[in-house]
Design a protein around this nucleic acid. Structure first.
Length: 569
DNA sequence: CGCTTTTGACCTGCGC
DNA sequence: GCGCAGGTCAAAAGCG
Protein backbone atom coordinates (compact mmCIF):
# COMPACT_ATOMS: atom_id res chain seq x y z
CA UNK A 1 0.00 0.00 0.00
CA UNK A 2 2.76 2.34 0.82
CA UNK A 3 4.51 1.57 -2.29
CA UNK A 4 1.42 2.03 -4.13
CA UNK A 5 0.90 5.39 -2.52
CA UNK A 6 4.45 6.34 -3.28
CA UNK A 7 4.01 5.34 -6.84
CA UNK A 8 0.87 7.29 -6.93
CA UNK A 9 2.69 10.33 -5.68
CA UNK A 10 5.50 9.82 -8.08
CA UNK A 11 3.05 9.72 -10.80
CA UNK A 12 1.30 12.74 -9.47
CA UNK A 13 4.51 14.59 -9.07
CA UNK A 14 5.57 13.71 -12.51
CA UNK A 15 2.36 15.07 -13.83
CA UNK A 16 2.96 18.75 -13.69
CA UNK A 17 -0.52 19.74 -14.33
CA UNK A 18 -1.83 18.10 -11.24
CA UNK A 19 -0.08 20.48 -8.95
CA UNK A 20 -3.17 22.43 -8.10
CA UNK A 21 -5.02 19.38 -6.99
CA UNK A 22 -2.23 18.44 -4.69
CA UNK A 23 -2.15 21.93 -3.27
CA UNK A 24 -5.80 21.69 -2.48
CA UNK A 25 -5.12 18.55 -0.58
CA UNK A 26 -2.35 20.34 1.27
CA UNK A 27 -4.72 22.90 2.56
CA UNK A 28 -6.92 20.26 3.96
CA UNK A 29 -4.15 18.47 5.82
CA UNK A 30 -1.99 21.28 7.13
CA UNK A 31 -1.15 21.08 10.87
CA UNK A 32 0.45 24.42 11.44
CA UNK A 33 3.92 23.51 10.23
CA UNK A 34 6.04 25.95 8.33
CA UNK A 35 7.45 23.70 5.73
CA UNK A 36 4.58 23.42 3.54
CA UNK A 37 6.29 21.11 1.22
CA UNK A 38 7.15 18.73 3.96
CA UNK A 39 3.82 19.05 5.69
CA UNK A 40 2.08 18.62 2.53
CA UNK A 41 3.99 15.55 1.78
CA UNK A 42 3.56 14.13 5.30
CA UNK A 43 -0.01 15.04 5.49
CA UNK A 44 -0.57 13.59 2.19
CA UNK A 45 1.12 10.52 3.36
CA UNK A 46 -0.96 10.47 6.48
CA UNK A 47 -4.01 10.99 4.53
CA UNK A 48 -3.31 7.97 2.50
CA UNK A 49 -1.54 5.94 5.18
CA UNK A 50 -3.18 2.97 6.59
CA UNK A 51 0.02 1.28 7.69
CA UNK A 52 1.49 1.39 11.20
CA UNK A 53 5.11 1.26 10.32
CA UNK A 54 5.84 4.94 10.79
CA UNK A 55 9.48 4.75 10.16
CA UNK A 56 9.10 3.25 6.91
CA UNK A 57 6.42 5.65 6.35
CA UNK A 58 8.59 8.63 7.18
CA UNK A 59 11.42 7.37 5.16
CA UNK A 60 9.25 6.91 2.31
CA UNK A 61 7.91 10.30 3.02
CA UNK A 62 11.35 11.84 2.80
CA UNK A 63 12.00 10.21 -0.47
CA UNK A 64 8.84 11.50 -1.85
CA UNK A 65 9.53 14.90 -0.42
CA UNK A 66 12.73 15.07 -2.32
CA UNK A 67 11.22 13.72 -5.39
CA UNK A 68 8.38 16.10 -5.17
CA UNK A 69 10.70 19.05 -4.74
CA UNK A 70 12.51 18.16 -7.86
CA UNK A 71 9.25 17.65 -9.56
CA UNK A 72 8.01 20.94 -8.33
CA UNK A 73 11.03 22.70 -9.62
CA UNK A 74 10.42 20.93 -12.81
CA UNK A 75 6.83 21.97 -12.72
CA UNK A 76 7.63 25.57 -12.08
CA UNK A 77 10.29 25.76 -14.67
CA UNK A 78 8.08 23.97 -17.05
CA UNK A 79 5.32 26.39 -16.36
CA UNK A 80 7.62 29.28 -16.88
CA UNK A 81 8.84 27.74 -20.07
CA UNK A 82 5.28 27.28 -21.23
CA UNK A 83 4.50 30.83 -20.54
CA UNK A 84 7.54 31.99 -22.35
CA UNK A 85 6.79 29.77 -25.26
CA UNK A 86 3.29 31.01 -25.34
CA UNK A 87 4.51 34.56 -25.61
CA UNK A 88 6.83 33.65 -28.38
CA UNK A 89 4.01 31.88 -30.04
CA UNK A 90 1.87 34.92 -29.69
CA UNK A 91 4.48 37.07 -31.25
CA UNK A 92 5.08 34.63 -34.03
CA UNK A 93 1.42 34.25 -34.64
CA UNK A 94 1.01 37.94 -34.85
CA UNK A 95 3.82 38.25 -37.21
CA UNK A 96 2.40 35.70 -39.55
CA UNK A 97 -1.02 37.11 -39.28
CA UNK A 98 -2.30 33.74 -38.28
CA UNK A 99 -3.50 34.43 -34.76
CA UNK A 100 -6.92 33.30 -33.85
CA UNK A 101 -9.43 35.03 -31.66
CA UNK A 102 -8.28 33.02 -28.72
CA UNK A 103 -4.70 34.00 -29.08
CA UNK A 104 -5.72 37.58 -29.52
CA UNK A 105 -7.66 37.43 -26.32
CA UNK A 106 -4.81 35.77 -24.57
CA UNK A 107 -2.45 38.32 -25.89
CA UNK A 108 -4.69 41.08 -24.66
CA UNK A 109 -4.27 39.60 -21.25
CA UNK A 110 -0.54 39.22 -21.42
CA UNK A 111 0.70 41.92 -23.72
CA UNK A 112 0.26 45.58 -23.34
CA UNK A 113 -1.98 47.49 -25.69
CA UNK A 114 0.86 49.26 -27.53
CA UNK A 115 2.26 46.05 -28.82
CA UNK A 116 -1.20 44.91 -29.73
CA UNK A 117 -1.96 47.88 -31.95
CA UNK A 118 1.44 47.61 -33.56
CA UNK A 119 0.73 44.03 -34.37
CA UNK A 120 -2.60 44.90 -35.87
CA UNK A 121 -0.94 47.42 -38.12
CA UNK A 122 1.62 44.86 -39.04
CA UNK A 123 -1.11 42.42 -39.75
CA UNK A 124 -2.90 44.80 -42.08
CA UNK A 125 0.26 45.54 -43.93
CA UNK A 126 0.96 41.90 -44.38
CA UNK A 127 -2.53 41.36 -45.65
CA UNK A 128 -2.02 43.99 -48.29
CA UNK A 129 1.23 42.49 -49.37
CA UNK A 130 -0.31 39.09 -49.56
CA UNK A 131 -3.18 40.40 -51.60
CA UNK A 132 -0.84 42.11 -54.01
CA UNK A 133 1.15 38.95 -54.41
CA UNK A 134 -1.98 36.96 -55.05
CA UNK A 135 -3.14 39.46 -57.60
CA UNK A 136 0.15 39.34 -59.38
CA UNK A 137 -0.04 35.59 -59.42
CA UNK A 138 -3.53 35.76 -60.77
CA UNK A 139 -2.49 38.05 -63.56
CA UNK A 140 0.38 35.80 -64.38
CA UNK A 141 -1.98 32.88 -64.52
CA UNK A 142 -4.32 34.76 -66.80
CA UNK A 143 -1.57 35.60 -69.22
CA UNK A 144 -0.41 32.06 -69.18
CA UNK A 145 -3.93 30.89 -69.70
CA UNK A 146 -4.35 33.10 -72.71
CA UNK A 147 -1.11 31.95 -74.16
CA UNK A 148 -2.08 28.34 -73.73
CA UNK A 149 -5.45 29.01 -75.22
CA UNK A 150 -3.98 30.55 -78.32
CA UNK A 151 -1.55 27.69 -78.53
CA UNK A 152 -4.41 25.29 -78.35
CA UNK A 153 -6.22 27.11 -81.10
CA UNK A 154 -3.18 26.96 -83.26
CA UNK A 155 -2.75 23.30 -82.64
CA UNK A 156 -6.38 22.71 -83.45
CA UNK A 157 -6.08 24.57 -86.68
CA UNK A 158 -2.97 22.71 -87.64
CA UNK A 159 -4.66 19.49 -86.79
CA UNK A 160 -7.61 20.38 -88.94
CA UNK A 161 -5.39 21.31 -91.83
CA UNK A 162 -3.46 18.10 -91.52
CA UNK A 163 -6.64 16.17 -91.37
CA UNK A 164 -7.88 17.64 -94.58
CA UNK A 165 -4.53 17.15 -96.16
CA UNK A 166 -4.53 13.55 -95.14
CA UNK A 167 -7.97 13.21 -96.53
CA UNK A 168 -6.80 14.68 -99.80
CA UNK A 169 -3.86 12.34 -99.98
CA UNK A 170 -5.98 9.38 -99.14
CA UNK A 171 -8.36 10.42 -101.78
CA UNK A 172 -5.74 10.15 -104.43
CA UNK A 173 -5.29 6.50 -103.75
CA UNK A 174 -7.15 4.26 -106.20
CA UNK A 175 -9.22 2.73 -103.47
CA UNK A 176 -10.08 6.06 -102.06
CA UNK A 177 -11.32 7.05 -105.41
CA UNK A 178 -13.99 4.46 -105.28
CA UNK A 179 -14.80 4.94 -101.69
CA UNK A 180 -15.03 8.65 -101.99
CA UNK A 181 -17.64 8.50 -104.63
CA UNK A 182 -20.09 6.89 -102.32
CA UNK A 183 -19.05 8.35 -99.09
CA UNK A 184 -20.29 11.80 -99.66
CA UNK A 185 -20.45 12.81 -96.08
CA UNK A 186 -18.18 11.15 -93.69
CA UNK A 187 -16.67 12.19 -90.47
CA UNK A 188 -13.12 12.32 -89.48
CA UNK A 189 -12.89 12.93 -85.80
CA UNK A 190 -16.12 14.69 -85.72
CA UNK A 191 -15.53 16.87 -88.68
CA UNK A 192 -17.31 16.71 -91.89
CA UNK A 193 -15.01 15.90 -94.69
CA UNK A 194 -17.53 14.34 -96.92
CA UNK A 195 -17.90 17.39 -98.99
CA UNK A 196 -14.21 17.64 -99.39
CA UNK A 197 -14.21 14.11 -100.62
CA UNK A 198 -17.06 14.83 -102.82
CA UNK A 199 -15.44 17.62 -104.62
CA UNK A 200 -12.14 15.94 -104.69
CA UNK A 201 -13.68 13.11 -106.53
CA UNK A 202 -15.10 15.43 -109.02
CA UNK A 203 -11.77 17.01 -109.41
CA UNK A 204 -10.30 13.64 -109.86
CA UNK A 205 -12.64 12.83 -112.61
CA UNK A 206 -11.80 16.00 -114.36
CA UNK A 207 -8.17 15.35 -113.99
CA UNK A 208 -8.29 12.18 -115.99
CA UNK A 209 -8.46 14.31 -119.02
CA UNK A 210 -5.21 15.88 -118.10
CA UNK A 211 -3.63 12.54 -117.77
CA UNK A 212 -4.72 11.47 -121.17
CA UNK A 213 -3.59 14.58 -122.85
CA UNK A 214 -0.27 14.42 -121.15
CA UNK A 215 0.46 10.89 -122.09
CA UNK A 216 -0.59 10.85 -125.66
CA UNK A 217 1.39 13.39 -127.53
CA UNK A 218 4.65 14.89 -126.53
CA UNK A 219 4.25 17.83 -128.82
CA UNK A 220 0.79 18.73 -127.87
CA UNK A 221 0.56 22.28 -126.71
CA UNK A 222 -2.06 21.39 -124.22
CA UNK A 223 0.30 19.05 -122.64
CA UNK A 224 2.95 21.68 -122.61
CA UNK A 225 0.65 23.94 -120.76
CA UNK A 226 0.05 21.30 -118.20
CA UNK A 227 3.72 20.85 -117.66
CA UNK A 228 4.02 24.50 -117.25
CA UNK A 229 1.54 24.26 -114.50
CA UNK A 230 3.47 21.46 -112.95
CA UNK A 231 6.63 23.43 -113.17
CA UNK A 232 5.09 26.38 -111.49
CA UNK A 233 3.74 24.26 -108.74
CA UNK A 234 6.91 22.40 -108.29
CA UNK A 235 8.94 25.50 -107.90
CA UNK A 236 6.92 26.73 -105.03
CA UNK A 237 5.87 25.57 -101.69
CA UNK A 238 2.25 25.43 -100.94
CA UNK A 239 2.34 28.70 -99.15
CA UNK A 240 4.12 30.33 -101.95
CA UNK A 241 1.54 29.16 -104.36
CA UNK A 242 -0.91 31.43 -102.71
CA UNK A 243 1.56 34.19 -103.15
CA UNK A 244 2.06 33.77 -106.85
CA UNK A 245 2.03 36.99 -108.62
CA UNK A 246 -0.99 37.86 -110.47
CA UNK A 247 0.48 37.32 -113.85
CA UNK A 248 1.36 33.78 -113.10
CA UNK A 249 -1.91 33.24 -111.44
CA UNK A 250 -3.70 34.48 -114.42
CA UNK A 251 -1.75 32.27 -116.70
CA UNK A 252 -2.40 29.20 -114.73
CA UNK A 253 -5.87 30.22 -114.10
CA UNK A 254 -6.64 30.32 -117.71
CA UNK A 255 -5.50 27.01 -118.89
CA UNK A 256 -6.61 27.49 -122.43
CA UNK A 257 -4.37 30.35 -123.20
CA UNK A 258 -1.91 29.06 -125.63
CA UNK A 259 0.85 30.79 -127.49
CA UNK A 260 0.95 33.85 -125.34
CA UNK A 261 1.72 31.84 -122.26
CA UNK A 262 4.34 29.63 -123.78
CA UNK A 263 7.35 31.77 -123.31
CA UNK A 264 10.36 30.80 -125.28
CA UNK A 265 12.77 30.14 -122.43
CA UNK A 266 12.18 26.51 -122.81
CA UNK A 267 15.48 24.96 -122.09
CA UNK A 268 14.72 24.17 -118.51
CA UNK A 269 11.14 23.63 -119.23
CA UNK A 270 11.94 21.00 -121.80
CA UNK A 271 14.02 19.27 -119.20
CA UNK A 272 11.14 19.33 -116.84
CA UNK A 273 8.87 17.97 -119.49
CA UNK A 274 11.28 15.19 -120.12
CA UNK A 275 11.62 14.54 -116.47
CA UNK A 276 7.95 14.29 -116.06
CA UNK A 277 7.69 12.03 -119.04
CA UNK A 278 10.27 9.72 -117.64
CA UNK A 279 9.78 9.75 -113.94
CA UNK A 280 6.50 11.10 -112.93
CA UNK A 281 3.51 8.97 -112.65
CA UNK A 282 0.19 10.20 -113.74
CA UNK A 283 -0.48 10.76 -110.09
CA UNK A 284 2.10 13.49 -109.91
CA UNK A 285 0.70 15.21 -112.89
CA UNK A 286 -2.70 14.79 -111.50
CA UNK A 287 -1.64 16.30 -108.26
CA UNK A 288 -0.03 19.24 -109.93
CA UNK A 289 -3.06 19.84 -112.05
CA UNK A 290 -5.18 19.63 -108.99
CA UNK A 291 -3.04 22.17 -107.24
CA UNK A 292 -3.21 24.53 -110.13
CA UNK A 293 -6.92 24.32 -110.14
CA UNK A 294 -6.90 24.84 -106.47
CA UNK A 295 -4.76 27.88 -106.78
CA UNK A 296 -7.05 29.41 -109.27
CA UNK A 297 -10.01 28.65 -107.13
CA UNK A 298 -8.53 30.36 -104.18
CA UNK A 299 -8.89 33.55 -105.98
CA UNK A 300 -12.37 32.71 -107.03
CA UNK A 301 -13.84 32.40 -103.60
CA UNK A 302 -15.07 35.82 -102.70
CA UNK A 303 -16.20 37.82 -99.79
CA UNK A 304 -18.48 40.67 -100.53
CA UNK A 305 -19.07 43.52 -98.12
CA UNK A 306 -22.01 45.82 -98.53
CA UNK A 307 -21.77 49.05 -96.65
CA UNK A 308 -23.22 52.50 -96.92
CA UNK A 309 -20.60 54.94 -97.92
CA UNK A 310 -20.36 58.08 -99.94
CA UNK A 311 -16.72 57.48 -100.58
CA UNK A 312 -15.43 55.54 -103.50
CA UNK A 313 -13.90 52.85 -101.39
CA UNK A 314 -14.10 51.55 -97.89
CA UNK A 315 -10.94 51.73 -95.93
CA UNK A 316 -9.68 48.32 -95.00
CA UNK A 317 -6.11 49.12 -94.10
CA UNK A 318 -4.54 47.78 -97.25
CA UNK A 319 -3.00 49.57 -100.18
CA UNK A 320 -4.72 49.07 -103.48
CA UNK A 321 -3.96 49.92 -107.02
CA UNK A 322 -6.66 50.24 -109.59
CA UNK A 323 -6.01 48.19 -112.64
CA UNK A 324 -9.23 48.36 -114.50
CA UNK A 325 -12.73 49.61 -114.71
CA UNK A 326 -15.67 48.17 -116.50
CA UNK A 327 -19.27 48.87 -117.03
CA UNK A 328 -21.15 45.93 -115.69
CA UNK A 329 -24.38 44.86 -117.21
CA UNK A 330 -27.47 45.89 -115.34
CA UNK A 331 -25.67 48.48 -113.32
CA UNK A 332 -25.14 52.03 -114.48
CA UNK A 333 -22.26 52.35 -112.06
CA UNK A 334 -18.89 51.18 -113.28
CA UNK A 335 -17.07 48.44 -111.50
CA UNK A 336 -13.53 49.18 -110.46
CA UNK A 337 -10.85 46.55 -110.10
CA UNK A 338 -8.15 46.90 -107.52
CA UNK A 339 -5.17 44.80 -106.61
CA UNK A 340 -3.25 44.78 -103.36
CA UNK A 341 0.07 46.56 -103.63
CA UNK A 342 1.35 46.07 -100.14
CA UNK A 343 3.64 43.37 -101.42
CA UNK A 344 4.72 42.43 -104.86
CA UNK A 345 2.81 39.48 -106.08
CA UNK A 346 0.05 39.67 -103.54
CA UNK A 347 -2.83 37.89 -105.20
CA UNK A 348 -5.56 39.72 -103.36
CA UNK A 349 -7.93 41.75 -105.48
CA UNK A 350 -11.08 43.54 -104.88
CA UNK A 351 -13.91 44.94 -106.92
CA UNK A 352 -15.77 48.01 -105.92
CA UNK A 353 -19.13 48.89 -107.29
CA UNK A 354 -22.11 50.86 -106.21
CA UNK A 355 -25.40 49.14 -105.84
CA UNK A 356 -27.68 49.91 -108.73
CA UNK A 357 -30.75 50.07 -106.53
CA UNK A 358 -29.25 52.17 -103.82
CA UNK A 359 -26.22 54.10 -104.85
CA UNK A 360 -25.30 54.91 -101.33
CA UNK A 361 -24.42 51.30 -100.87
CA UNK A 362 -20.91 50.36 -101.78
CA UNK A 363 -20.27 46.75 -102.62
CA UNK A 364 -16.70 45.64 -102.12
CA UNK A 365 -15.78 42.15 -103.14
CA UNK A 366 -12.53 40.65 -101.91
CA UNK A 367 -10.77 37.77 -103.49
CA UNK A 368 -7.70 35.85 -102.43
CA UNK A 369 -5.35 35.70 -99.48
CA UNK A 370 -2.61 38.13 -98.69
CA UNK A 371 0.91 36.79 -98.87
CA UNK A 372 2.46 39.38 -96.61
CA UNK A 373 2.14 40.71 -93.09
CA UNK A 374 -0.68 43.10 -92.63
CA UNK A 375 -0.94 46.23 -90.56
CA UNK A 376 -3.29 45.96 -87.63
CA UNK A 377 -5.85 48.05 -89.41
CA UNK A 378 -6.00 45.59 -92.25
CA UNK A 379 -5.78 42.49 -90.16
CA UNK A 380 -9.39 42.13 -89.32
CA UNK A 381 -10.75 42.53 -92.78
CA UNK A 382 -8.07 40.37 -94.29
CA UNK A 383 -8.73 37.71 -91.74
CA UNK A 384 -12.37 37.76 -92.49
CA UNK A 385 -12.00 37.59 -96.22
CA UNK A 386 -9.28 35.03 -96.01
CA UNK A 387 -11.31 32.90 -93.71
CA UNK A 388 -14.34 33.14 -95.89
CA UNK A 389 -12.42 32.22 -98.99
CA UNK A 390 -10.74 29.37 -97.23
CA UNK A 391 -13.96 28.10 -95.88
CA UNK A 392 -15.68 28.22 -99.17
CA UNK A 393 -12.87 26.51 -100.95
CA UNK A 394 -11.90 23.97 -98.41
CA UNK A 395 -15.30 22.47 -98.07
CA UNK A 396 -15.62 23.39 -94.46
CA UNK A 397 -18.73 24.93 -95.59
CA UNK A 398 -20.29 21.71 -96.69
CA UNK A 399 -21.37 22.91 -100.08
CA UNK A 400 -23.87 25.64 -100.29
CA UNK A 401 -26.46 23.54 -98.67
CA UNK A 402 -24.69 23.10 -95.40
CA UNK A 403 -24.41 26.11 -93.25
CA UNK A 404 -26.56 28.25 -95.34
CA UNK A 405 -29.51 26.04 -95.03
CA UNK A 406 -29.47 25.50 -91.38
CA UNK A 407 -31.91 27.76 -89.61
CA UNK A 408 -31.86 25.58 -86.55
CA UNK A 409 -28.18 25.73 -86.45
CA UNK A 410 -28.28 29.42 -86.78
CA UNK A 411 -30.65 29.83 -83.97
CA UNK A 412 -28.67 27.51 -81.82
CA UNK A 413 -25.41 29.19 -82.47
CA UNK A 414 -26.55 32.69 -82.24
CA UNK A 415 -23.72 33.58 -80.02
CA UNK A 416 -23.08 37.00 -81.27
CA UNK A 417 -25.70 39.58 -80.74
CA UNK A 418 -26.53 39.71 -84.39
CA UNK A 419 -29.85 38.72 -85.58
CA UNK A 420 -30.50 36.35 -88.38
CA UNK A 421 -31.73 38.05 -91.42
CA UNK A 422 -33.05 37.27 -94.78
CA UNK A 423 -30.83 35.92 -97.45
CA UNK A 424 -30.90 36.27 -101.13
CA UNK A 425 -29.58 34.39 -104.04
CA UNK A 426 -27.62 35.96 -106.77
CA UNK A 427 -27.88 33.62 -109.68
CA UNK A 428 -25.54 35.75 -111.67
CA UNK A 429 -22.65 35.35 -109.30
CA UNK A 430 -19.97 33.41 -111.12
CA UNK A 431 -18.07 32.31 -108.03
CA UNK A 432 -18.89 31.17 -104.55
CA UNK A 433 -19.39 34.34 -102.61
CA UNK A 434 -20.06 35.27 -99.05
CA UNK A 435 -21.77 38.58 -98.60
CA UNK A 436 -21.55 40.58 -95.44
CA UNK A 437 -24.32 43.09 -95.46
CA UNK A 438 -23.66 46.01 -93.19
CA UNK A 439 -26.31 48.27 -94.59
CA UNK A 440 -29.17 47.30 -92.31
CA UNK A 441 -27.81 48.47 -89.06
CA UNK A 442 -29.42 51.57 -87.63
CA UNK A 443 -26.24 52.24 -85.77
CA UNK A 444 -23.51 50.04 -87.04
CA UNK A 445 -21.16 50.77 -84.25
CA UNK A 446 -23.47 49.43 -81.66
CA UNK A 447 -22.98 45.77 -81.98
CA UNK A 448 -25.54 44.77 -79.49
CA UNK A 449 -28.07 45.46 -82.12
CA UNK A 450 -28.76 43.42 -85.16
CA UNK A 451 -25.95 44.23 -87.42
CA UNK A 452 -25.55 42.47 -90.62
CA UNK A 453 -26.66 39.87 -92.99
CA UNK A 454 -24.73 37.11 -94.50
CA UNK A 455 -25.49 35.80 -97.88
CA UNK A 456 -23.98 32.90 -99.57
CA UNK A 457 -23.95 32.94 -103.26
CA UNK A 458 -23.22 29.95 -105.30
CA UNK A 459 -22.17 30.13 -108.92
CA UNK A 460 -25.54 28.94 -109.92
CA UNK A 461 -28.66 28.22 -108.06
CA UNK A 462 -28.10 24.74 -106.86
CA UNK A 463 -26.00 23.32 -104.13
CA UNK A 464 -23.98 21.21 -106.45
CA UNK A 465 -22.84 24.29 -108.16
CA UNK A 466 -20.14 24.44 -105.59
CA UNK A 467 -18.52 21.79 -107.65
CA UNK A 468 -16.11 24.22 -109.25
CA UNK A 469 -14.37 24.63 -105.98
CA UNK A 470 -14.10 20.94 -105.62
CA UNK A 471 -11.10 20.38 -107.72
CA UNK A 472 -8.98 19.08 -104.97
CA UNK A 473 -8.26 22.14 -102.98
CA UNK A 474 -5.35 21.33 -100.80
CA UNK A 475 -5.58 22.52 -97.26
CA UNK A 476 -2.00 23.57 -97.39
CA UNK A 477 -2.97 26.19 -99.84
CA UNK A 478 -5.41 27.87 -97.67
CA UNK A 479 -5.23 29.81 -94.55
CA UNK A 480 -6.90 27.66 -92.03
CA UNK A 481 -6.32 29.96 -89.18
CA UNK A 482 -9.51 31.73 -89.63
CA UNK A 483 -11.43 29.11 -91.37
CA UNK A 484 -13.13 27.58 -88.46
CA UNK A 485 -13.61 30.88 -86.85
CA UNK A 486 -15.35 32.26 -89.80
CA UNK A 487 -17.52 29.26 -89.92
CA UNK A 488 -18.65 30.03 -86.46
CA UNK A 489 -18.99 33.63 -87.28
CA UNK A 490 -21.31 32.96 -90.12
CA UNK A 491 -23.58 30.84 -88.13
CA UNK A 492 -23.41 33.23 -85.27
CA UNK A 493 -24.43 36.04 -87.46
CA UNK A 494 -27.33 34.10 -88.72
CA UNK A 495 -27.04 32.62 -92.11
CA UNK A 496 -29.93 31.74 -94.19
CA UNK A 497 -29.87 29.88 -97.36
CA UNK A 498 -30.04 31.76 -100.57
CA UNK A 499 -32.50 29.59 -102.36
CA UNK A 500 -35.81 30.93 -103.23
CA UNK A 501 -37.99 27.91 -103.45
CA UNK A 502 -39.30 26.16 -100.42
CA UNK A 503 -38.54 22.88 -102.07
CA UNK A 504 -34.93 23.75 -102.34
CA UNK A 505 -34.92 24.81 -98.75
CA UNK A 506 -36.26 21.53 -97.61
CA UNK A 507 -33.96 19.61 -99.83
CA UNK A 508 -31.01 21.59 -98.67
CA UNK A 509 -31.94 21.37 -95.04
CA UNK A 510 -32.14 17.64 -95.31
CA UNK A 511 -28.55 17.53 -96.34
CA UNK A 512 -27.30 19.05 -93.16
CA UNK A 513 -25.77 16.44 -91.07
CA UNK A 514 -25.33 16.41 -87.37
CA UNK A 515 -21.63 16.43 -87.62
CA UNK A 516 -21.71 19.77 -89.27
CA UNK A 517 -23.82 21.08 -86.49
CA UNK A 518 -21.49 19.74 -83.92
CA UNK A 519 -18.44 21.14 -85.60
CA UNK A 520 -20.06 24.46 -86.12
CA UNK A 521 -21.25 24.66 -82.58
CA UNK A 522 -17.77 24.02 -81.36
CA UNK A 523 -16.33 26.60 -83.64
CA UNK A 524 -18.91 29.17 -82.86
CA UNK A 525 -17.82 29.34 -79.31
CA UNK A 526 -14.47 30.73 -80.28
CA UNK A 527 -14.32 34.20 -78.72
CA UNK A 528 -11.19 35.19 -80.56
CA UNK A 529 -12.80 35.32 -83.88
CA UNK A 530 -15.78 37.04 -82.49
CA UNK A 531 -13.51 39.80 -81.38
CA UNK A 532 -11.82 39.84 -84.75
CA UNK A 533 -15.11 40.18 -86.48
CA UNK A 534 -16.20 43.02 -84.31
CA UNK A 535 -12.94 44.70 -85.00
CA UNK A 536 -13.31 44.11 -88.71
CA UNK A 537 -16.76 45.52 -88.89
CA UNK A 538 -15.79 48.44 -86.75
CA UNK A 539 -12.89 49.18 -89.03
CA UNK A 540 -15.13 48.99 -92.05
CA UNK A 541 -17.89 51.14 -90.80
CA UNK A 542 -15.89 53.39 -88.63
CA UNK A 543 -13.74 54.42 -91.51
CA UNK A 544 -16.37 54.78 -94.09
CA UNK A 545 -16.88 58.39 -93.53
CA UNK A 546 -13.28 59.20 -93.04
CA UNK A 547 -11.57 57.20 -95.61
CA UNK A 548 -10.83 60.10 -97.83
CA UNK A 549 -8.84 61.58 -95.05
CA UNK A 550 -7.07 58.72 -93.45
CA UNK A 551 -7.34 56.02 -96.02
CA UNK A 552 -4.15 54.95 -97.66
CA UNK A 553 -5.75 53.44 -100.65
CA UNK A 554 -6.06 56.21 -103.09
CA UNK A 555 -5.24 59.78 -103.26
CA UNK A 556 -8.09 62.11 -102.46
CA UNK A 557 -8.15 63.33 -105.97
CA UNK A 558 -8.50 59.85 -107.27
CA UNK A 559 -11.29 59.10 -104.94
CA UNK A 560 -12.95 62.28 -105.93
CA UNK A 561 -12.59 61.52 -109.58
CA UNK A 562 -13.97 58.08 -109.19
CA UNK A 563 -16.88 59.32 -107.17
CA UNK A 564 -17.58 61.91 -109.77
CA UNK A 565 -17.51 59.36 -112.47
CA UNK A 566 -19.80 57.12 -110.60
CA UNK A 567 -22.15 59.94 -109.98
CA UNK A 568 -22.07 60.95 -113.61
CA UNK A 569 -22.79 57.53 -114.78
C1' DC B 1 10.92 60.37 -112.36
C1' DG B 2 8.20 57.08 -110.34
C1' DC B 3 3.81 55.76 -109.17
C1' DT B 4 -1.08 55.59 -110.11
C1' DT B 5 -5.08 55.93 -112.97
C1' DT B 6 -7.38 55.64 -117.30
C1' DT B 7 -8.95 53.24 -121.10
C1' DG B 8 -9.17 50.52 -125.17
C1' DA B 9 -7.92 46.02 -126.50
C1' DC B 10 -7.70 41.36 -125.58
C1' DC B 11 -8.87 36.88 -123.49
C1' DT B 12 -11.97 33.53 -121.45
C1' DG B 13 -16.18 31.28 -120.21
C1' DC B 14 -20.75 30.57 -121.10
C1' DG B 15 -25.15 30.37 -123.38
C1' DC B 16 -27.54 30.03 -127.59
C1' DG C 1 -19.37 29.29 -134.16
C1' DC C 2 -20.92 33.56 -132.52
C1' DG C 3 -22.00 37.07 -129.33
C1' DC C 4 -21.99 38.74 -124.73
C1' DA C 5 -20.23 39.76 -120.25
C1' DG C 6 -16.62 39.58 -116.95
C1' DG C 7 -11.97 40.11 -116.12
C1' DT C 8 -7.21 41.51 -117.22
C1' DC C 9 -3.43 43.73 -119.60
C1' DA C 10 -0.57 47.42 -120.86
C1' DA C 11 0.32 51.76 -123.08
C1' DA C 12 -0.76 56.43 -122.39
C1' DA C 13 -1.84 60.08 -119.45
C1' DG C 14 -1.91 62.31 -115.03
C1' DC C 15 -0.01 63.64 -110.72
C1' DG C 16 3.13 64.95 -106.97
Amino acid sequence: MDNSVGLLFDTAAAAICKRDIIMAKDNDLINGEDHRDEKRVVNEMNFFAHDDSQHHHLKASDDRQETFRVDRVKTESSSAFDEHEERIKLDINTGLNLSTANTTNERSRNVDTGISSRNIEHKKHDKKIKLAVLRADLNKMSVENQRLRSLLNQVNNDYRALQLHLCALTQREPTGKLAGSTAGREMINGENVGVARQFMDLGQAGKDDHKVSLCNSSEDTTRFREFKIVESMEARSDDEIVALDDHQMGKRNISDRTEREVTPDDGQRAKKVARFNNNNSSRDVEQAASQSQTTSLIRRARVSVRARSEASMISDGCQWRKYGQKMAKGNPCPRAYYRCTMASGCPVRKQVQRCSQDRTILITTYEGNHNHPLPPAAMSMASTTSAAASMLLSGSMPSADGLIMSPNLLAKNNVLPFSPSSASLSASAPFPTVTLDLTHSPNPLQFQRPLGQFHFTSPNNLPHNFVPMSHGLGPALIDNNYQSNFLGLLSSLGLEHPYDSAQNRIQAASLISDNISAATAAITSDPGFTAALVSAIASIIGNNDHQNHNGNNNSPSTARNTSEKIEQS
